[in-house]
Amino acid sequence: MALRFDREAGQGLRLISLTLAYVLVMLAAPLLMVITFSFWTQDYLTIDTTLTLNNYREAWGTPIYQVLMWRSLKISLIVTVVTVLLAFPIAYYLSFHVTRRKALWLFLITVPFWTSYLLRVFLWKVILGYNGVLNSALLGLGFIDAPLTFILYNLNAVVITLAHAWAPFAILPIFVALEKIDRSLLEAATDLGDSPLRRFFRITLPLAMPGIVAATLIVLIPTVGDFITPRLVGGTDGLMISNMIQIQFGKANNAPLGAALAVSSMVVIGLISVGIFLVGKKLGGRVR
């Protein structure tokens, strides 16, 4: 038995070694390099490799970076909460009420996601703009007297656009978790006298929690790194930390500071993610 296991282990490791090597060279090594880089300094074109914390002092101490970091976190968290809240009823509907053609529904949900990302963001600008689709429609129908201005070039626009962009990523994990719920548990709860609402909070929600946590993390982490949406629809109040990272690596030509900003935002978002994961584990996964 031991021999068989060893042979199997060897075969498995050999099979995965090429993929692992690729990820080590193209992901692990670059990530370590960025971390090292963030402790160096750059003076125009020359890199000074003396280790220093100056980049982090600047990243954490300068008001503009503090503002951008807070705003990024705030926007990402709002986007995540909105996206997951909007997605949950859809996942619930698909899992509990749609009996035929589930796969078709799932497919239809993913189709908009395959429109060019840049164009989707741009089209939201067209929809939400001063003379945009939404305003002309509302004006035409007589619901409003003057175009709404609070929907473009600010936080709201970023939230709407990102909630749209990440919708399938939020719906699918929740749907999978809901599908796994043993329906006889729900019948048992009803038989034992639970009201539908009580049943929902005692069984459905806790058992859906792993999916909700997965959806939350899948939306939250990449959102912090988005710099297209803030740039196109966010206006000046919607700029995020990634825009600054991009500027440091581009125009400002201060890669070490950009690296420090990138590492800082990843550490912060990593800690928040671990927190969400632990809270989700505590709250869910079993019938209450």
Partner: peptide, 28 residues
């Protein structure tokens, strides 16, 4: 196959799924 360190290795390979693309781009 079952092999030692499987969870960690597969986790590392799947990591780009949750990493923001800007981080991957900047690192490379």
């Amino acid at each position: 196959f079952a092999f030692p360190g499987k969870t960690g290795i597969v986790g590392l390979i799947m990591l780009p799924l949750v990493l923001p693309e800007i981080i991957i781009a900047v690192a490379l």
